[in-house]
Design a protein around this nucleic acid. Structure first.
Lengths: 351, 351
DNA sequence: CGTATTAGCTAATACGCATTAACAACCCAC
DNA sequence: GTGGGTTGTTAATGCGTATTAGCTAATACG
């Protein structure tokens, strides 16, 4: 039986048992591989450590090294599978490096409060996604290594997906299917990723000569219920669009739900395209056409970037090339219905 | 500007500035409210602490108190919204108590390895759900306070939902709708919650005089794709059931998907009932009839139970009353179709 | 006035580990 | 053999906090 004592085994215990000093034990066990320790001694120590079931106290180690070997991740909503995927990506690479990750969302809190708590825990760094990092007060992140996701910044390094392209792809896909009466549902937010999706969409739309009247630009929280309500409103308007782009898949699924509930035939009467390609996108019926964003990869890269900083390396804040996104054609988009033609109306656009 | 120095503010800094000793600062700031400190001194210390932006180093505190103020949660799959809800419940009450929570799943790992990592981090306790705690080797959890969810145990306190009732409700609901040819899809697992759902289902079925042939008992991983494959197999068999109970909502959504894809009319030709009532259950079309399990509440209670232990209180391992579950009737269940009657076949049952 | 008693504070120590300066032992060459 | 190097080990210190024993000054008491 390895250890039945209630008190955890320390380096002192190992030292005593192995007949060496605590320092030697530390030298052997604390990584530092270039420490000059005789082969025999090293083996003896390792042996005893194993025998006693020694495990280093990460807190103590952190105290002396001035690191906690933990990082925080703050996202708006862990319930959104997209952000969960990002966190998963982070967790994977961080776990390998021996770091713990403390995920948290701001559903019932604020980024500030979260960051406070994380700092109290002495986390070594944070990864921030989707909560408008740019708007955070300057000192909320002082003394902290930071990586931002999908939010270019001059202060911190970051990784991003090609959100602009995502929006463009949606527009081009719909335009290619002959749609000219298209709507948009997205949150009123200053979160960069969302804004770029929107901008790309309108950009490509405009280039295709397609306008978008004000009543077809619906603001809604980026959730299922948000999308549901927005689509309901959209359908009750006198003139209906034949297609809609939703800023994320949750909105899109809500929109789809509302459409089906109203007896609208998707995709024959109405095409819907989402964004993110969460797992559920291919579970709903009909399956959701969407723009796939490499969430896990985003998380993984953000983590690696943070690790580099934690290793003391300088990391450029210059944004790298955004990660490519891709259209996933599924069953919620189809050719525009033969309608009463495309009537002219005030093309509002956006920007 | 509160603090522009790179080095965090310590009790020593506060002490120096306030003209008292570090010990006094600690006495004032470390909670211990019955410490004898003069009112004036206390106020002065608090003032200076505020001014310098002092925040306690939780690691150092943990070191001396022998606690880390962190706990772990291990579940099989954080991607499953049910478990995520449990974790959310945990997180909420733990955050209030000043504890960090390290969530982790066993998708690409094992409970053992996870627990190892958690112990290396000196977590003070763990909450275990859905990973077969009973089967864990005895020493994987030594020196750790433990609470198990949905898994009665003689070793650790726990909280549970009324899984047996969940299964019964499903059976009774289907029986009440006139179904007599019912199937079951669930994982081959020793996770107690799943087994109880299954047992309750078969129990009530038997009491209703309904048998279930072997080919209608399908084993599948508790995921969407698991449910999809199982239902596909079920539909390709010569004799189809008119209803199916799925051990969780993911399976049910997969099953629904497969049915719709095969052109089966749900619920007219086939009724489906799931279990958990995850958010997506009401997003798919048709909306899923399911048994609601109070996931958040489970998590919250587990957390409170763990907190009691961490406070040094003795906590009974005797199981309390299980949390009630309830049937949520939605759109995937309907009266059994008028079929070619109920043919007699070898009623296999289960158990 | 001398002695208990108390309030208010501090010095010292410990927590478990990493790190470094210093030391001991040994080898080589001259 | 003595000086200089190399190698292996250790004593000592510090990380930031909590805690305890103990000190001082003030107050109470006979």
């Amino acid at each position: 039986m390895p250890n039945s004592s209630p008190r955890p085994v320390t380096t002192h215990d190992v030292a005593r048992r192995a007949g060496v000093s605590q320092a030697t034990v530390s030298l052997v066990l604390s990584g530092n591989p270039r420490a000059r320790v005789a082969r025999a001694t090293r083996e003896r120590v390792l042996e005893v450590a194993e025998e006693l079931g020694y495990r280093p106290n990460i807190l103590a180690r952190g105290l002396v090294r001035g690191k906690s070997y933990a990082i925080g991740v703050v996202v708006p909503d862990l319930t959104n599978p997209f952000y969960l995927d990002v966190v998963t990506g982070v967790q994977r690479v961080m776990a390998e490096a021996g770091y713990a990750v403390l995920p948290g969302d701001t559903r019932e809190s604020t980024p500030i409060r979260h960051l406070e708590a994380l700092r109290a825990r002495q986390v070594d760094g944070v990864i921030i996604d989707g909560v408008g990092a740019a708007a955070l007060p300057h000192d909320a992140l002082s003394e902290l290594k930071v990586v931002v996701v999908d939010e270019p910044s001059e202060r911190w390094p970051g990784v991003a997906s090609d959100a602009l392209a995502a929006g463009r792809m949606a527009a081009e896909h719909l335009a290619g299917l002959g749609h000219r009466r298209v709507a948009f549902i997205g949150p009123a937010t200053d979160v960069h990723g969302f804004r770029m999706r929107e901008r790309g969409f309108f950009q490509a739309l405009r280039e295709g000569g397609i306008g978008l009247p004000h009543e077809w630009l619906r603001r809604a929280p980026p959730t299922v219920s948000g999308g549901l309500a927005a689509m309901k409103a959209l359908l009750s308007s006198p003139r209906r669009p034949t297609a809609v782009f939703c800023a994320n898949d949750l909105i899109a699924m809500g929109a789809l739900k509302a459409a089906l509930k109203a007896g609208v035939d998707v995709p024959r009467e109405l095409s819907i395209v989402g964004c993110d390609d969460v797992e559920m996108a291919s579970v709903v019926t009909p399956e959701l056409t969407t723009i796939a964003i490499p969430a896990r990869e985003l998380g993984a890269r953000a983590a690696r970037l943070l690790l580099r900083q934690l290793d003391g390396q300088e990391v450029s804040v210059k944004p790298g090339k955004p990660l490519p996104v891709r259209l996933v054609r599924r069953a919620t988009t189809a050719a525009a219905p033969e309608g009463p033609g495309d009537t002219e109306h005030g093309t509002a656009g956006n920007g």
